[in-house]
Design a protein around this nucleic acid. Structure first.
Length: 281
DNA sequence: ACCGCACCCTGAGCGC
DNA sequence: TGCGCTCAGGGTGCGG
């Protein structure tokens, strides 16, 4: 499911459902792939915590937790539940009959439905961070500038001297965090830059256009609720609509919306890249 | 430091 | 129906 817009939509939809609620019970599967914190430890650590908020960093969701202290003082607990949705991860809270792909179920005090984490391919990750671990967490530490805030100057610095394709660099979360395959293709089209261009050959002017395109595309996608292709749906089960505005992604062979030439597809960095040979230089 | 590739896992869709 | 193949929005880790 998840690039930045889908993760952000998930965050916004879940926030009013979970904020302020206590976690009464947790059920965890035995998946070694999904649980970076062992399931037992995860369940034990979460039980009794209150969810105070949800932040997002790139494609990660950070559930902020506090634990009522038995001693009268109340220093913030500060633990964080880190969730990455991978390719097929879903977080949702609605009437649902769990199947074999559900890896974690949380019962929240006073909530209408259970909160589910489901992931068929198990590329998603769940991790519990102790209060002081977030700052030193390698996964979070390596994330670059968030896609919604990327500037041309940043892209210019990141791309200098780089021989890899610009698309490969956009997919690298340590340069720009949150951009994935769909939005990289869409942003490159909007900026008129071929995905295969060596990053180091992208001009200063194009870096400005590309950064602006990334921000615009991501912002618009968030407004439309993300792209619902394959199995991405909102926490309440409703779809997003940005796929209607895809101009190159998934449109191989169909006419370019600008010039009519057939959209091409090539593989870059083990991922398919979609682009227009006329409009993108 | 950087780059390209193999790999992790399951399901859907296609041609035969 | 079933088989074998390709494809899928993610990231990590390795050798060169």
């Amino acid at each position: 499911m998840p690039e930045l817009p889908e993760v952000e939509c998930c965050r916004r939809a879940l926030l009013p459902i979970v904020r302020g609620r206590a976690i009464e019970d947790v059920k965890a599967s035995a998946s070694k792939h999904v649980f970076l914190t062992p399931p037992h430890e995860m369940a034990r650590g979460l039980r009794g915590c209150r969810i105070t908020g949800i932040d997002r960093k790139g494609k990660y969701l950070l559930f902020r937790l506090s634990k009522p202290s038995r001693t009268a003082q109340k220093p913030p607990h500060g633990a964080t539940l880190l969730v990455h949705l991978g390719m097929t991860g879903q977080l949702f809270s609605r009437a649902y009959a769990p199947d074999k792909h559900v890896h974690m179920t949380m019962r929240l005090a006073g909530a209408k439905h259970l909160l589910y984490f489901r992931d068929a391919r198990q590329f998603g990750k769940i991790l519990l961070l102790a209060p002081k671990e977030e700052a030193s967490n390698a996964r979070l530490e390596k994330l670059g500038v968030d896609g919604l805030e990327v500037r041309g100057e940043h892209l210019w610095r990141e791309t200098r001297g780089r021989a890899a394709a610009i698309k490969a660099l956009l997919l690298d979360q340590s340069s720009v965090a949150g951009v994935g395959n769909i939005y990289a293709d869409e942003a490159l089209f909007a900026a008129g830059v071929r995905p295969s261009r060596k990053a180091g050959r992208v001009t200063r002017d194009e870096c400005e256009r590309l950064a602006a395109a990334i921000r615009t595309v991501l912002t618009r996608a968030v407004e439309l609720g993300g792209s619902s292709i394959s199995d991405y749906i909102h926490p309440d089960g409703s779809p997003g609509y940005f796929q209607i505005e895809h101009r190159v992604y998934g449109r191989t062979g169909r006419p370019c919306v600008t010039c009519g030439a057939p959209i091409k597809r090539v593989v870059i960095g083990q991922r398919s890249a979609h682009w227009c040979a006329t409009c993108q230089k």
